[in-house]
Design a protein around this nucleic acid. Structure first.
Length: 497
DNA sequence: TCTGGGGTCCTAGGACCC
DNA sequence: TCTGGGGTCCTAGGACCC
């Protein structure tokens, strides 16, 4: 806990949907829903315009379509989201090297570890807080300028309270919670406001008559341990009384890599299941290798027709990134599960990751064994995946970036019955016109996402480069840096109102 | 209305070793 | 002959987060 609100939590507003609106001028101000578009998809992000219709994250897409039939329904463009995320994270790193990303659109920053740390440490209470507010408002303005997107920021003396504050700040706001005010702010909130308390824990607490954070604080640690178990109980009690000492820790290496697929129709037969396991294992290995890692434990995940989910795992003698080894292991695990009634989802994952890729003896032995042993892949099947990729490339996804030889850059608005509709516009154009083509029109091809600003592509890091320290300092004397004068707090720094 | 995909952390039992 | 306790690893499942 700190006496200065020097930990900030940044959260981009309706991130995926906001990126789509920034990239697609015709969607600005309109309901946009990003998520899985198949029969079993769910909403990933809804723009604020769509939220007014009751659409929210994790809602089945079918329900979202009923609630808001006129929204633009888009499948995600993760390459674009990653690009924008890198710009945002770069801006955060100008404030401090201690940046802890929680996802593409969220991160903690420890200001004390950065260039303003010494000033903050010296400053008296009021001056320190005004500096934090000024830095946070500058940050929000920089994000707006560089990406066109809005972000909400919470500042407080702990990660817990910074996160609570950014939640209160949404959308497009800043809330600072003064150290000392923790319990007053938390007390009236429902228990679900605490991170780590989900539906299950909420039920347990509700049955015990505990509904607000103040109830939790009053209940005491012993009762919470009784109800929730040692670890969770202690943690929840600490949060409830406003205590949180967790440090901001810079980006950590992933501990597992996994891929999974939900099928439009449940898989009924074993052979089909095994073929899908092969495809998933290959995808998993590709990701593992791209990350330069190898793993020891192979995990198979199966969700059955009735949504019951099980995992089976096997730990190898050493870490591997060998596709044959991982595939065979996953297949072995899959052949042991009961698939009666059908399989809704399959997943393949690897954990116990090693920091480096080693061509280990175990993998080599396994491979020669497998090669010597048996089944050459049937000729037809060998071409299967490649042929499938061709087909996927011609399967136009709503939202997807495309380029037309004559009309230039655009995005897929929809497709069906052999036709694809494209809207030709760019992040920096006005709203564009729509044209329709045959799905196999040779003049039309998939494209990479465009940067949100025309000039953002300059520089070797594609616009994500960090500005010179002097640049920021320079502004310090300017508008953003006169915290006393500008009173960004229309935002209620105490977070009380 | 029928529930995605990518992760993290925790618990608990059994094996195995000292 | 009966009875230990602790530590670590593996496996499975579940809660939770974005």
């Amino acid at each position: 806990m700190r006496s200065l609100p020097s930990i900030i939590h940044l959260d981009m507003d309706a991130f995926f949907a906001a990126v789509e609106q920034a990239a697609k001028p015709s969607l600005r101000g309109k309901p946009v829903i990003v998520g899985g578009l198949g029969g079993r998809g769910v909403v990933s992000t809804a723009s604020y315009e769509a939220r007014r219709f009751g659409v929210h994250s994790a809602m089945p897409m079918a329900q979202a379509r009923r609630l808001c039939p006129n929204a633009a329904f888009l499948s995600g463009r993760f390459e674009a989201y990653r690009q924008v995320s890198e710009i945002v994270m770069g801006l955060l790193r100008e404030l401090s090297p201690l940046v802890q990303p929680l996802s593409l659109d969220e991160a903690f920053v420890d200001l004390e570890a950065g260039p303003y740390g010494p000033v903050l440490a010296e400053a008296d209470h009021g001056t320190g807080e005004r500096l934090v507010v000024a830095l946070a408002e500058d940050l929000r303005a920089d994000i707006q300028r560089r990406t066109g997107l809005t972000a909400s920021v919470g500042a407080a003396g702990s990660k817990l309270m910074a996160k609570i504050a950014s939640e209160q700040a949404k959308p497009d706001g800043l809330v600072l919670i003064e150290p000392g005010e923790e319990r007053a702010v938390l007390g009236p909130m429902p228990v679900r406001a605490l991170p780590g308390i989900g539906p299950a824990t909420e039920q347990v607490l509700r049955r015990a008559g505990l509904n607000t954070v103040a109830d939790l604080a009053e209940a005491g640690e012993a009762e919470l341990v009784q109800l929730l178990g040692r670890s969770h109980g202690v943690g929840v009690h600490q949060m409830a009384i406003g205590l949180d000492d967790r440090p901001v820790v810079a980006d950590q290496d992933a501990k597992s890599v996994s891929v999974e697929d939900t099928f439009e129709v449940d898989l009924a037969d074993r052979e089909r299941v095994l073929r899908e396991v092969d495809v998933l294992a290959a995808r998993c290995v590709r990701r593992l290798r791209a990350a330069g890692r190898s793993g020891r434990t192979v995990v198979l995940k199966v969700r059955r027709f009735d949504f019951s989910t099980l995992t089976r795992s096997e730990t190898l003698r050493g870490p591997t990134d060998d596709e044959a080894v991982i595939t065979e292991t996953a297949r072995r695990l899959a052949s042991q599960v009961d698939i009666t009634g059908g399989v809704r989802l399959l997943g393949v994952g690897v954990s116990q990751l090693a920091d480096y890729t080693q061509e280990d003896l175990f993998a080599q032995a396994e491979r020669t064994e497998a090669a010597a042993e048996q089944h050459p892949v049937p000729a037809g099947e060998e071409n299967g995946p490649a042929a499938e990729e061709e087909a996927v490339a011609r399967h136009w996804m709503p939202g997807q970036d495309v380029h037309h030889d004559e009309f230039g850059p655009g995005w897929v608005q929809g497709s069906g019955v052999g036709r694809v509709t494209v809207r030709f516009e760019t992040p920096w154009s006005g709203p564009g016109r729509v044209r329709t083509f045959a799905v196999d029109d040779p003049a039309l091809e998939p494209a990479r996402p465009l940067p949100l600003h025309r000039d953002a592509g300059r520089g070797e890091h594609g616009g994500a480069e960090v500005a010179e320290p002097g640049e920021r300092r320079g502004r310090e004397g300017g508008s953003g840096a006169d915290p006393a004068g500008q009173d960004p707090a229309g935002q209620d720094p105490a977070g009380k109102g």
